[in-house]
Amino acid sequence: MENRLKTGNSNFTAMMEFVLLGFSDIPNIQWILFGIFLVIYLTVFMCNSTIILITKIDPALQTPMYFFLSNFSFLEICYVTATIPRMLMDLLTQKGNISLLACATQMCFVLMFGGSECLLLTVMAYDRYVAICNPLHYPLVMNHKVCVQLVTASWVSGVPVMFGQTYQIFSLPFCGPHTINHFFCDIPPVLKLACGDTFVNEVAVYVVAVMFVMVPFVLIVVSYGKIISSILKLSSARGRAKAFSTCSSHLIVVVLFYGTATVTYLQPKPNQSEGIGKLLSLFYTILIPTLNPLIYTLRNKDIMMALKNLATKFSR
């Protein structure tokens, strides 16, 4: 009876708290990592905030494409905020203790923002498809009401699904080791700690990944297939170059984000090493959101011009 009680208490304790190992395997550079990730977070916040600001105040950027871009920038801020502040605190305190509720909350927000990003990237591809393949109907098809509805759907559609998946995962018993070899509560490392059969949960992960990663990716590929076909039919070389330039930034972001997210969530769990999983997560949750503002600004003449105008106003 006493042994059973001890086991029960041990199980209960394990269920109430996890330990995020983060980058504890390289203790000598914890402060360097803290500085790097702090700079990255501030860069993501400031660059995306600047994009949001100029798309609101510059009349030349009052178009559906930049409306979607400003929402994407705000989403990127939310996305990195779901992981980096917690990671900075762990690096600062040298402790990775996280309660079950906090872990579930973090996972839910990361999944919701990640799913919204997939859907919003699809909406942005559709916007470019209409603009290039049906330019005469573009103002009618992509009116403000439609744009707001598409953005709202991107933000809201994944909420019940991701909340349900998080609830399903954290309804499992966690009676073994409570150390998560990761820098945030991601699905693969958390599922590895669950006791009993996780087959249903793994199938659910695949289904959701197909819904929010593969299906949007296929739609984007189809959209860009038609876009490229239409561009190649243009007689003017200058027109083709301009059309390609408006799409290239979005295409780069899509390849980077979907490439790492697909490997993470569609690769069979036994085949994914913890180190590789952590590295891939680092790419799609932190490094790619850091690159996105640079990709969109440096390759976009309209935004560069808006930034120059903004800098001129501040310098007066």
Rank of each mutant, 00 (worst) to 15 (best):
S49F: 15
I52H: 09
T55N: 07
I57S: 11
I57Q: 07
P64N: 10
M65A: 15
Y66H: 01
F67V: 02
F68L: 11
F68N: 01
S70V: 01
N71P: 10
N71E: 14
N71A: 12
S73H: 02
F74S: 09
I77E: 15
I77T: 01
T81Y: 05
T81V: 03
A82T: 14
A82G: 05
A82L: 08
T83L: 05
R86P: 03
M87F: 12
L88R: 10
D90S: 08
L91M: 14
L91I: 08
T93A: 08
Q94W: 11
Q94S: 08
K95G: 15
G96L: 05
N97W: 08
I98F: 06
S99D: 08
L101V: 09
A104Y: 05
A104H: 06
M107C: 15
F109I: 13
V110N: 01
L111K: 03
M112G: 00
F113Q: 01
G115P: 01
S116K: 03
C118W: 00
L119R: 13
L119M: 11
L120V: 09
L120S: 14
T122L: 14
V123N: 06
M124C: 11
V130P: 00
V130T: 15
A131L: 05
I132V: 06
C133S: 09
N134F: 05
P135R: 07
L136I: 10
L136A: 09
H137L: 01
V141A: 04
M142Y: 02
M142A: 04
H144S: 07
K145L: 15
K145H: 12
V148P: 01
Q149W: 04
L150C: 01
T152Q: 09
S154P: 10
